[in-house]
Design a protein around this nucleic acid. Structure first.
Lengths: 345, 345
DNA sequence: GTGAAAGCGCTAACAC
DNA sequence: GTGTTAGCGCTTTCAC
């Protein structure tokens, strides 16, 4: 009884139960539960005294107990599946995803569980974690095309949404940027500026975005009756961008413009260009992809194709949350990219 | 009964319970529980048949039920508290923290819940989340010195560890890099190179690391009988680093070396220097702090003070996990930084 | 070594 | 409107 004297702030969770509150407030557990969950059907007077008791006792509901009966946890997982998931945060792109998802779920008091998957054991661990029902669903950011995870999620019937179109059709909702339109924007811009010797630094060709961007690049060049001046593959890292640029400089020295498939790789390319004494954009123009914070870190600031990542991430959360509330047919949402012209072209 | 025929892969979590497994294996729930939790006291024959039933039925334990009785969840929170928590991932520093923590908890099958705190509501939300016991503890990365969160965590008696020394003494374990030693390394290096007109771009002075680095900078300069050539405050962002560098160039044009309190700010400074036609390191030498991936993104690659962030993050997880298993006296661990000499000095 | 039984704290019918 | 009651699926004494 003297628990009432204990200030709420000092209360260790789990000490005070619904039952305790009910006893003190002189009502039943059900009534307290109704008040806690904001159900309308409680007389103002009772509600008042329950609220008082709750405050006085520092009552905090036990999530495990609640979730045991409601079969929902109030949290979702954000899984990043990549061979080098540990390096993933070096690309500000992922920070934007985390941020977008966080902002979207916050008003609903949904928590985010972060899972980095970079090998077989960690994949199994994630799968079993999901099956144990510790989260209500999962947003999967999977970068390589042969990742078995999307298919496994579909089979496991875990509510899931993907941050990209799956390589093969899967009964899963996904969100994507119109890669093709984005690349067209970049190429058209370069062509309009009068460039004719256009090369590209591609993303890894075992990732769908890497592949799609390269295909679109070639398609658009052909559309303009141009052939590619050069092509070097990177893996979306800065170092690989630098290496690819060096290759290009060597193999196709007369290139006058380069479409680089990510801003981070473009940053690597910029450094190589500086060292080689090539001025940007006078000697060589550069267009990136993403419009992450890295685009502004380039010198000169990078012209790039903007993906509305935050909005896409929010949409991802949206789709998942809907899916969780009531199972529905998989849906997809395509976002349009935008060309951001800065000083590198 | 024909559940046995259902392939494990198709099993939706929650369908099969301990009880079901027990019935099929012809044992009691207690025995199944023992097998699942790897208790030794089970006859090999029974264990065998239980395992068979589990596999056949695709049984997955229900975490909520388990956690209701064990009062532990198998997950911890990583909370980032900052006015601009959303921007936090633009600094690769935080990626390293996430990565270090992830790697450390993975072998123990502990999950990571990410919480970004950037305003009053989100702070209250985190606090109540922690009190509800949905995680067993929290690692707090708090950047500003007047953050009430550390004290609140201590009062709430939530197992917690801090990624930096708290401004005022608190009964909480923490991990930190020896800021002073790191700055000394940087200053001594510059002095040894013959620089005498040394300025600094500081971190925000409402953050402890920002303050400590500035204080150490001045202390070490004095030790060498030097006075600072200039001082401009940034907020650890690239943009602020650029602005601060511009200020310095204007107010103290004869500066021949600058200690910049973070790599990201140094990146901003580099750009400004290029534009101003100052060569690095011939006209002006630059030393950063952190050794994040940004240091290599600089042109020239940045000499910087390396914080062993991954190791620190792992230690943080370690301390928290120990704390959770058995409450102990708060401990602190100090890590030694290291000077990484590259081409900017 | 194994099983029976008692809850963990909560929600949701269902009566009143 | 409000209380009573019956579990949710699991772990864990405590007998056997």
């Amino acid at each position: 009884m003297d628990k009432i004297l204990v200030p709420a702030d000092d209360t260790v969770h789990g000490t005070v139960t619904l039952e305790d509150v009910a006893r003190v407030a002189g009502v039943s557990r059900a009534t307290v539960s109704r008040v806690v969950n904001g159900k309308a059907t409680v007389a103002p007077a009772l509600r008042k005294s329950v609220e008082k008791a709750i405050a006085a006792m520092g009552y905090v509901p036990n999530l495990a107990a609640r979730s045991l009966v409601t079969r929902s946890t109030g949290s979702i997982a954000l899984a990043v599946s990549d061979m080098s998931a540990g390096q993933i945060f070096f690309d500000p792109f992922f920070g934007r995803v985390v941020n977008g998802v966080t902002q979207a779920v916050r008003p609903r008091s949904v928590q985010l569980v972060l899972a980095l998957v970079d090998d077989e054991p960690s994949r199994r661990q994630l799968l079993s974690f999901l099956r144990q029902g510790h989260v209500d669903g999962v947003i999967l950011v999977s970068t390589h095309a042969d990742d078995p995870l999307p298919a496994e999620l579909a089979r496991a019937k875990v509510p899931a949404v993907l941050a990209a179109r799956p390589p093969e059709p899967l009964p899963l909702s996904f969100v994507e940027v119109d890669q093709r339109a984005g690349v067209f924007l970049a190429v058209d811009h370069l062509v309009a500026l009068g460039h004719t010797r256009i090369a590209t630094v591609t993303g890894p060709q075992d990732s769908s975005s890497g592949r799609e961007r390269l295909a679109a690049f070639r398609e658009r060049l052909a559309h303009h009756d141009l052939s590619e001046s050069g092509c070097a593959e990177g893996d979306f890292t800065q170092v690989s961008g630098a290496a690819a640029m060096r290759t290009l400089l060597e193999r196709a020295p007369d290139t006058d413009a380069v479409f680089v498939a990510s801003d981070l790789m473009a940053l690597g390319a910029v450094t190589v260009l500086h060292r080689a004494g090539r001025r940007i954009p006078q000697d060589l123009a550069l267009v990136g992809f993403d419009d992450s914070s890295i685009a502004l870190a380039c010198d000169p600031p990078l012209t790039t194709v903007r993906q509305p990542v935050e909005a896409m991430a929010a949409q991802l959360a949206e789709l998942l949350l809907e899916q969780i509330i009531s199972p529905q047919y998989p849906q997809s949402r395509i976002f349009q990219p935008e060309l951001i012209v800065r000083d590198s072209t």
